[in-house]
Design a protein around this nucleic acid. Sequence first.
DNA 1: CTGTTAGCGCGTTCAC
DNA 2: GTGAACGCGCTAACAG
Lengths: 336, 336
Amino acid sequence: VRDGLTKRPTSADVAREAGLSRSTVSYVLNDDPNQKIPPATRERVLVAAAKLGYTPSAAARALRSGRSDVVLGLLPDWPMSTPLGSLLEHLAELLETHGLTLLLHPRTNSKRPVSALWKSITPAVVILFEQPDEDEKAAIKAAGAALAIVSLTDVKTQGNRYRFADESLGRLQVEHLAAAGHRTLGYGYPADERLKSFAEPRLDGTRMACADLELETPMVRTVPLDPAGAEAALTAWMSADPPVTAVCAYNDEIATAVLAAAHRLKVEVPTQIAVIGVDDMPTAQLTQPPLTTIARNFVAYAEVITANVINAMNGQAAVERWPHSDSMTLIIRESA
Amino acid sequence: VRDGLTKRPTSADVAREAGLSRSTVSYVLNDDPNQKIPPATRERVLVAAAKLGYTPSAAARALRSGRSDVVLGLLPDWPMSTPLGSLLEHLAELLETHGLTLLLHPRTNSKRPVSALWKSITPAVVILFEQPDEDEKAAIKAAGAALAIVSLTDVKTQGNRYRFADESLGRLQVEHLAAAGHRTLGYGYPADERLKSFAEPRLDGTRMACADLELETPMVRTVPLDPAGAEAALTAWMSADPPVTAVCAYNDEIATAVLAAAHRLKVEVPTQIAVIGVDDMPTAQLTQPPLTTIARNFVAYAEVITANVINAMNGQAAVERWPHSDSMTLIIRESA
DNA sequence: CTGTTAGCGCGTTCAC
DNA sequence: GTGAACGCGCTAACAG
């Protein structure tokens, strides 16, 4: 199977085959409205193109127009997850609606600068999911691409950037627990360094909600995803004065760790300690008791990113609105 | 912030700035070994390029060479997961070693043909993770890209394609359980249709291992990720004659569901029923008892895919060897 | 009206 | 060290 060696037909080949000029071929194939090509000629071109299996060269087209319809998404060093995958899928679909193609590049750990990428592709827009350093910014600008910085978290910087209020997640958690009568809260912080940029705004959200509701600020403990570490965190919460009665977990994994620790330490859930997570991951309903958690509507997220990409292409600033609690769903499960 | 409007410098700009010809600029920037450029001239070029922030245009380069260094990975409609993300990350890193750039396109559900992609990009190689239909194959060939079909599962077809033996996962599970004295096994099959192409070879692996060890073929039950459904599966296993004493789960999620069902039905693990999963997902050590599972070495997987991509580029057939049990690690956790 | 010629865009490379 | 041509598709200006 040696597909690599067959040379692909060019528009000149099609022209020759049809006995016409390259211009005519181009006009027909692009349905140029400024030209009137008689149906007979038109047909000749189409037949020839089909016969040769002609596909226009992306390289030549991009070279001529100076602009490709590629949106390049640079994936940061985040652990991949089902929700993130779902977001990217929706995003690809939405961008396609606008005639744009989403291509993702997994961030490698190599020290080679990202700019190596611009040698390979001329994207119309680059989506960065994190704050870039100045070098990176310069490289993108040099490549002529519009820059869209999409922060999925809530960094407090300004610019052509879009903010997703992870704070709202923390707020929702606190509001739910407070409504259930809890007054002393804990926060289960992830041990994975890479999650810091998500964890901070969520934690901030719980702090602000606590302030609004006149509760003590939550007692933060890092919860490793191993039994011993989680037990230590739980012990700290239970032995505080007054003891913590409910924990906002960074996500469902952390929440699962807290539940496991509770089980081993014979702490009753939710009577002695309540737990709420984020993500509604597949196994969330399989814990003892089933996990109360918050699911997000990633279609809404994708819509905002798309709007931002379009704006960036037109040299406009980032859009103002962003998904809030209205795109998040609290999922309350009955304790078994 | 209107970055989109600044026009990027070309090699002609650099030549003008340095007071030299475009040829010289090209020779210097590419370190052409067939040319002898005096250090002084060389320096002039480099300074000018740096001053203008010159980056060569990918489009022009691709147009000229007829080859881009992009490897396009078409992601099928799989649920994204941490292990899959890890594989893709390793793959990107390895391909970069060979001067290739991995770009991923999330498969959208739109009926628009994949060929729309060729308008945006001319990849050197396309990685398909599934068997393509004939139209798709033709489109890729027409675009001049080499075709590498990488099956992460174990479809029984021949061609320029690489097979990953998911069968080995099933085999390892059975061998472990048999070594622990189990004679009657069950298989926990996923409810998600998209996982079928992974589940089938794994199940086949357990069947073959059972045959080799002269055990009954495993009793297959679909295990939904909800408590009730999982309980039904477990009940079926327990009430079989003779009763199933150990379950090979498709992955750790399924295994977790079985454990949860066991807990609710007061079935003791692992004495009454043993469970083994696949993936070593983060929460695997948080179940009651901690999950025995199989972790995979995705670097080994990435290496094979890379070798295959290189081969496809050179018009050669797929490589023969593939990761087996030697790239899989059995993780046995003590029952609490 | 119909269809052609000519030249652009950008980096690479041969021949002088 | 340079001029010129090439690879491929698009399109303004022009000729039949």
